[in-house]
Amino acid sequence: MSREKLTKLKNWYAKESTMGWVFILPLLLYFIVFQLAPMLLSFGISFTSWNLRSPAEFVGFENYKNLLFDSVNYPDFWPSLWITLKYIVFSLPGGIFIALVLAAMLNANVKGEGFFKTAYYIPNITAMVAVAAMWIFLLDPKYGLVSQLFDIDQSWLGSKSTALPTLGIMAIWSALGYNVLILLTTMKGIPDELYESATIDGANAWQKFTKVTLPMIQPTIFFLIVTGLIAAFQVFDQMYLMTGGGPDGATQTYMLSLYNHAFRYFEMGTASAMSYILLIIILIITWVNFKFIPQRFDD
């Protein structure tokens, strides 16, 4: 190799952007092979009838049409969407609100902040299977802690009216640590001067919270709402592990129904179509979020 060429190569190599690409290459490859390619493929599959065993057959918009209008062959579609929405109502606003209260309390320089942060975060890093096993134990209708506490024999996961709210509460509990941590970190980042000047203006603690803290953490709350909504639309493991969609379909969420189509009935086309319908729903809702929920404090 000539010296000139070598310098050229060296220069190319030394460029920051080159190094940047090298560093993200593993993730980029992973993303393309395991995420982007399957996504594009499943878009194609959503227009076919395919059970993995016989060749895929192009059916146009048939899968989409059947899901939306054929309630005999696809009885789960609309109910599962509705149940997912209900689940979001049970789990998301309450979850963020409780996290906000806890974060504000921890932010008041309480003793043992580190302990509480860790304690709240543990559910978040515990495997869902373990969490589910523990909750099944707690929720036992006769001998479970919850029934004993309220002194009633209630099948929390077995009766239609309580199953979904119970799973919602469980979700709040397991996401709490993450939400608290994110909110608390943002609260810690608020400059002290703001509170000082509020004090000089004669603001009390409540006013400081509503006029200084809340506006300053609004972007974070927005972030939690958007990501929380997207995650809640895709809720799956709890239902799969704890109720299997029952009782009487009360916890049959959208993703669970999608899973059944894909891996129980092997209707890959239908399942792919469902995932694209969900994508569209999530896109619309996220757009609405960006449009109507305040992302930052503007005077």
Partner: peptide, 16 residues
């Protein structure tokens, strides 16, 4: 057959 009894874990095993 009350549901709260039927849904208790291992209800048959525990004689319920």
């Amino acid at each position: 057959s009350d549901q709260s009894v039927r849904d208790t874990q291992n209800a048959f095993g525990n004689g319920l």
